[in-house]
């Protein structure tokens, strides 16, 4: 599958960021989205019951289950928001600076730009092809990137990487 070049209004930080990186780069607004998503589900259920009461039915279990579903939905939305900034689709100044600082620090410490994976190269490639852009279909199926592959769509030189050997 050839890599799709997408025109983005902001600089690309990472075309397919690792799960932990996406979560680490959450803004307070993302946590607020997550919390709002968690709360909104049972709230909707509660207000629906106010509009159309179901007689003699306890709602405690349904509200808890709704909270769990809302927790999942809120997380997916927050994850999407963070990923959109990594892709450069939304404003990402803060993340750009964090990314530069983090990866330059790794270079300074003599580590590879992105963490190494224990998986063979072809598995990393498969993982990349499966997870890239998958956030756009979170409404149906969640597919996160849990593999430290080397496909990130950025120029290593901007982090101070001199040549290919430094990367490895």
């Amino acid at each position: 599958m050839p890599d799709k070049v997408v025109k983005t209004p902001y600089p690309v930080i990472d075309a397919d960021p690792h799960f932990s990186r996406v979560v680490r780069y959450f803004r307070p607004a993302d946590y607020a989205t997550w919390a709002a998503g968690t709360a909104a589900f049972p709230a909707l259920l509660y207000f629906w019951n106010m509009a159309d009461p179901i007689p003699r039915v306890r709602h405690r279990t349904a509200l808890r289950l709704g909270g769990l579903l809302g927790f999942a939905g809120g997380f997916l939305m927050a994850y999407q928001n963070s990923s959109l900034r990594f892709w450069g689709w939304t404003e990402n100044k803060r993340e750009e600076e964090m990314d530069l600082a983090e990866l330059r620090q790794r270079i300074a410490e003599g580590k590879p730009l992105y963490p190494d994976s224990t998986q063979p190269g072809w598995i990393q490639d498969v993982a990349y092809r499966n997870s890239v852009w998958s956030q756009l279909k979170f409404q149906a199926f969640p597919m996160f990137n849990f593999v430290n592959h080397q496909h990130h769509g950025t120029d290593p030189a901007k982090y101070g990487v001199k040549d290919k050997e430094t990367l490895e």
């Binding site: 939305m77 689709w89 499966n130 279909k137």
Partner: peptide, 28 residues
């Protein structure tokens, strides 16, 4: 409500200019 959430998640990534003609997912 799950459907409403799914619709909301879909709307959250509705960026016509960036998606343009479309992007391949899940290995194309």
């Amino acid at each position: 409500i799950i459907f409403i959430y799914a619709g909301g998640i879909s709307f959250n990534t509705f960026y016509i200019h960036s998606i343009e003609s479309g992007v391949g997912i899940y290995s194309g």
